[in-house]
C-alpha cells in the first residue's frame, strides 16, 4: 500500500519535474535568442511534397527584426522578397514598395508564432502548441505540436533547433510533406538599409 502511494506520487511528480526542467531550458533558450534584436542569416529551404518529383531547394537571405517582422529574400531559383509583419504578408517589388498579398493568414502564421516566442510571449504560442524543450542551451531542440485538433489534422509538428542562434526549422505536415529550413552565417544584423526599413515599416 505504501509502495503504491509512492508510486502514485512519483507518477504525478515526475512529469511535473520534467516540465519544470523543460520550462527552464525553454526560458533560457528564448532569453538567449531574444538578446539579438535583429539578425541576418543565409537560408536553404528544402521542401518535399508527395506531388513533387524531387525535393525542391531554394536559397536566399533572411533578416529578422524582433518585434517587427522578417524579410525573406529568395535568391534562387528566382529572386523575390517577402515581408512578414504582424498579420500582414507582402511581396516587395524591385522599387522596395510592399505589395500586400491576399489575406495571408496561413502563410504568416508560423512567422507570427516565431515573433511571439522570441518576444517572450510564450503563452500566446502555448494556446496553439504543446512545447517540449530538449538538450542544453548550447544545443537545443524545441518541438511544437499543435494543441488544436483541427490544426493537428493537417500539421504534424514544428521543430526548432539551434545554439546561440536559431539553426533550423522543420515543419512536418500530415499529408507527408516536409519543409526544412537551415540557417547559416547567422549574425547580428547591424544597420538596416533604407529599403529594408521601408519593407518592414520601420522608422
Amino acid at each position: 500500500m505504501r509502495r503504491l502511494k509512492w508510486l502514485l506520487l512519483l507518477w504525478f511528480v515526475m512529469p511535473l519535474a520534467h516540465a519544470q526542467a523543460d520550462d527552464a531550458l525553454l526560458q533560457r533558450v528564448l532569453t538567449s535568442l531574444g538578446q539579438h534584436a535583429a539578425v541576418r542569416a543565409d537560408f536553404t529551404q528544402t521542401r518535399s511534397d508527395p506531388a513533387l518529383e524531387k525535393p525542391r531547394v531554394s536559397q536566399g537571405h533572411l533578416l529578422f527584426v524582433l518585434g517587427h517582422g522578417m524579410l525573406w529574400q529568395t535568391q534562387s531559383p528566382f529572386v523575390q522578397t517577402l515581408a512578414f509583419t504582424g498579420q500582414q504578408a507582402a511581396r516587395i517589388d524591385p522599387q522596395g514598395v510592399p505589395q500586400p498579398m491576399r489575406d495571408a493568414r496561413g502563410v504568416s502564421r508560423i512567422s507570427q508564432m516565431l515573433q511571439a516566442m522570441l518576444a517572450g510571449h510564450v503563452n500566446e504560442v502555448r494556446r496553439q502548441f504543446h512545447i517540449a524543450a530538449r538538450g542544453s542551451t548550447a544545443h537545443w531542440t524545441l518541438q511544437l505540436v499543435p494543441r488544436q485538433e483541427r490544426m493537428a489534422r493537417v500539421l504534424g509538428s514544428i521543430e526548432l533547433r539551434g545554439d546561440a542562434y536559431l539553426e533550423g526549422i522543420r515543419i512536418a505536415m500530415r499529408d507527408g510533406s516536409h519543409t526544412d529550413i537551415r540557417f547559416s552565417q547567422t549574425r547580428d544584423a547591424g544597420a538596416l538599409s533604407g529599403l529594408e526599413k521601408r519593407a518592414l515599416d520601420l522608422p
Binding site: V154, I171, S177, I181
Partner: peptide, 20 residues
C-alpha cells in the same frame, strides 16, 4: 512563376488546399 512561388513559399503550414 506562380507555381514556383507557391512551391517555395516559406513557412507554409498547409492549412487549406494541397499542392496537388
Amino acid at each position: 512563376q506562380a507555381l514556383a512561388q507557391r512551391i517555395d513559399a516559406p513557412f507554409v503550414d498547409g492549412v487549406g488546399t494541397t499542392l496537388q
